[in-house]
Design a protein around this nucleic acid. Structure first.
Lengths: 215, 215, 215, 215
DNA sequence: TATGAATGAGGTTTCATTCAT
DNA sequence: CATGAATGAAACCTCATTCAT
């Protein structure tokens, strides 16, 4: 089916923010799909509403583009984490919700997970180049700390747990389901993508965390 | 003049197995460090005791080399898992040992972890090409199944846990510490590599699994 | 809202002559430093008080800008040569002064020398495009001709010397010290820039010319 | 006229030295004609018997090629200077011959002169990168030193002249005739290329040097 | 007149792979 | 088996210049 509208003009009409965003959207997909070296500037440009030249105009070089992609991806999750409101829930329910949300978000944002994998293959050098790494950890930990504090105060969570350790455990469990899906599901012949499989795994992850934290 | 006893310019000449192994050793390092696209056939050849021609002779092309690297890496861990003997330990202690061993092995074999990451970025296509994937899951799961069965029989482990789920949880927790070290330690300013940090995390991982499994 | 007294963002706005001069100043430096092909329109524009658009507005294209730079550089020296007044000196002293002045001027105006080198690499095509080449030779030769005539009349200079030949010799000796400084000083490990080195070479150049001209 | 031999194969049959030399020959011409930035790797490759890829194979990058060109050009003149035999001539005649030879060589090797100009525009950075600059000065100065010593001993040359100063003067006078020909001949409307013009200028240069050196 | 955004053409460099000996 | 030389295709990047506002 062809659209009734005329062929799209190749040029974004002098809207730099839109041009940048358009490039970043495509680049995110390409880098997430093929890694840094595997992605092709030409391919990114071709899928863009603008030209290869503009990529270099805005981002300097391929690496600059990748840094911008990484930055924006992290900014996205940070923004969402910061706006999670769990205060109205009891600590146990809040923790269940937080873990469940993390699981859902990571499964829904495979590109983000894959970018993080790619960046880890590169030993985090691009993230390091980004100005505001320090801010990235604030929302995630702050929320978790509050829930844990409330849980201990209420006597439902045990003492002696470090919030960053806990966050690492949550991240590890959620991350794996997306990041290692290809090899794990192949080797163990196990579906890890269907709604049912996700729902099942989601409960196990939540359960694992809760059993670890509770009295 | 040619002579059958002429000085051999290269160490591994005329020992095909050693040549293959040498190429695979170097290729493992390069692919683990730079990913499939990022690795360079020229660089691999240069670090080898032999020449580029031999890479093509033995492995066909870059992808064939990568498949061979992946196969050998998985074969390595499978072999070790198969030889783990935990029968003399009680179920709880056996599980602790298995998890601890997994954690230690993965931390000691960063290259393997990174190859798995790379392969996941490629959605497992090379692993799929490998003939014997099916065999890969046998040892890991068999050992775990035995321990879990003994634990339930002894009344120390609860019912209703699927061994593959449990294996996935163990893998996720161990894998993350190596795979995501770069970004996580950067963002949370947390050491994840020192002996102390490893020992600490190791205990948390074991504890997490045990709390999940025990009555 | 627009206002006739709004803050001017750039210093030279609305002063065409100053804008032109500012562009030419920067362009002179860039072309002298990097040659015609090596200089970048973007770099020139960036260092300017105005924008790239103005370069094209005033000079048409990169080549037009270069021609203008060359023209202005030659105009500068012509103007100075024309205003040299040596009439009050005896012929020998006048020649010494002229040569010394030429040496000093060229050493003080490295950019000019380098532009001439660049133009010679381009076989003088830009200079040819300039309207008033013919005028360029007048002052230099006129002054020299007068000195030489006076010297012969006074019996201190020998006959048979062509003023253009003499001018060429003076130019060659002065030019080399600036133009070939980089390679010569490197190969012969000889300082050609310090005040002492310049003073020493200056005397040799003057001496060479005087010995050539005197009876 | 077309040759009776078949079209030349594009490949130099596995003769690396010939391939290198062929590339250097063409590159010398292109760099001499258009400068470093103005020369095009594509153009050089096109005129070569081999391909662009080979340029990078042998010289790494454009700059590496330029360094090699510069090195070879200097090696050429050094070799010739080293083999100049003037011992059989009296000092005055030897000096005349040396200066005349220098003048002739430079006029006959415009490419070399232009490369030196280009390298000076680049402030000698490529020459600096070359390993054996130190050796470059030996033959030129050694020959001159010997002549001058003999001349003083014979009482025909005056005392107090430094050989490097003298060499600089000779170089300056010879160099200018080639290097600045384009602008000088244009401005002063003077032929600097015809055999007659060259012969005339040659004598002036020799005369200038001799008058400077003689008692 | 002024400016940031945009562009096409072409520049330099790199890559996996093959060939000749 | 072994090696340095060679290759075409395609990768990344830059340039002078023009456009829309």
């Amino acid at each position: 089916m062809t659209s009734t509208t005329a062929a799209l003009p190749r040029v974004l009409e002098r809207d730099p923010e839109a041009t940048r965003a358009n490039i970043l959207d495509i680049a995110t997909e390409e880098f997430a799909e093929k890694g840094f070296s595997g992605a092709r500037v030409d391919d990114i440009a071709a899928r863009t509403n603008t030209s290869k030249r503009m990529i270099y105009y805005y981002f300097g070089d391929k690496e600059g583009l990748f840094v911008a992609v990484i930055e924006r991806a992290y900014a996205g999750i940070r923004h969402i984490e910061a706006n999670l409101s769990l205060d109205h829930l009891g600590p146990e329910q809040a923790l269940r919700t937080l873990v469940g949300f993390t699981f859902d978000y990571q499964n829904a944002n495979e590109s983000f997970i894959r970018l993080v994998m790619v960046e880890n293959i590169h030993r985090g050098v691009h993230l390091a180049r980004s100005g505001n790494i320090a801010e990235l950890n604030v929302p995630a930990i702050a929320t978790l700390r509050d829930i844990y504090r409330r849980g201990r105060a209420a006597g439902v969570f045990r003492d002696g747990i470090d919030e960053i350790d806990l966050h690492m455990t949550i991240s590890a469990l959620c991350f794996f389901n997306v990041a290692n899906r290809a090899t794990f599901s192949r080797i163990f012949q196990r579906d890890m993508e269907s709604p049912q499989a996700l729902a099942r795994r989601r409960e196990i992850v939540i359960d694992t965390i809760l059993r670890y934290v509770k009295q």
